[in-house]
């Protein structure tokens, strides 16, 4: 089974600061990590390989420093890493990013004689769009299942999975090749091992440019991105609530009064 895991390097913080002039993320002084949801995708990829055999490849689009994220994935058990990096990709939105990744996947597919499963985290912790995974499947014209919480079975070229919903979960079947975006319920990612870390340190990471992956220059980078960011701003902080005090009857009266708009 050939498995491709798509990951993104993100700033290690839940409070992303935005430069109001450029509308871009302030990354200075913030440590970079693998997008937490992608770690579950890596773990699932390694587990599928342990179960079915085959090969796992991790890919990311980003600057040279994103190689660290690929090596970390290798230390968890992924076989190979590919960094897709080119100045021409700068400013890509989710459409251009998913197009770029799909071009790289086509190249991997050609070299490996096809692929079976693509795994992505459900969304990135910085952008929170959840669009790149579905975008890749669209560009590749393969089925997708988002929010996968369990891969139940893969048999006769058919995968049966559970998709997390707000009410519970759906059970879906999809033919291979297929793309899954995964949620954190799917597994408990392992820690890297020392042997894995040593392997990762020595692993050769392939670097591919726009030309290497045969990407149409009109579809990549800022010019290939249909999204226009008009303005980004930090939402105003919520105002504190009001605490009602007193015994139950008193509080209930006050609350009813407030709801009716009689008292303020």
């Amino acid at each position: 089974m050939n498995i491709i895991v798509c990951i993104k390097q993100v700033p290690e913080t839940t409070e992303v600061r935005i430069n109001p002039e450029t509308n871009t993320l302030i990354r200075d002084g913030v440590k970079s990590i693998i997008n937490p949801f992608d770690v579950y995708a890596i773990e699932e990829g390694v587990r599928l390989k342990e179960k079915f055999g085959g090969k796992t490849t991790v890919i990311t689009m980003g600057p040279a420093q994103a190689e660290t994220a690929l090596r970390e994935a290798i230390s968890m058990g992924i076989d190979e890493g590919v960094l897709i990096s080119d100045r021409a990709f700068a400013g890509s939105d989710t459409w251009a990013t998913s197009y770029t990744l799909s071009c790289a996947i086509k190249k991997i597919s050609k070299e490996m004689g096809g692929f079976d499963i693509i795994l992505c985290g459900k969304q990135a912790s910085d952008g929170d769009t959840a669009q790149v995974g579905p975008g890749i499947s669209t560009h590749l014209d393969i089925p997708q299942v988002t929010y996968v919480k369990k891969i139940e079975e893969i048999k006769d070229n058919l995968a049966r999975v559970q998709r997390l919903t707000e009410e519970g979960f759906d059970i879906l079947e999809a033919p291979l090749p297929v793309l899954f975006t995964v949620v954190k319920e799917i597994n408990l990612p392992r820690l890297p091992s020392l042997k894995g870390m040593m392997r990762a340190k020595q692993a050769k990471i392939s670097h591919w440019t726009a030309k290497d992956i045969d990407a149409d220059l009109h579809n990549i980078g800022l010019s290939g991105s249909p999204t226009n960011v008009i303005k980004i701003f930090t939402p105003p902080a919520r105002e504190g609530g009001q605490m009602l005090v007193g015994d139950t009857a008193e509080v209930a009266d006050k609350l009813v009064g407030l709801l009716k708009g009689e008292v303020s």
Binding site: L191, P192, L194, M197, M198
Partner: peptide
């Protein structure tokens, strides 16, 4: 050495996350 840093880093991670 790089290897020793790796041992330190991994042990630190295990200590913080698991111990």
């Amino acid at each position: 050495t790089d290897e020793q840093k790796m041992i330190q880093e991994l042990s630190h991670k295990i200590a913080e996350e698991k111990l």
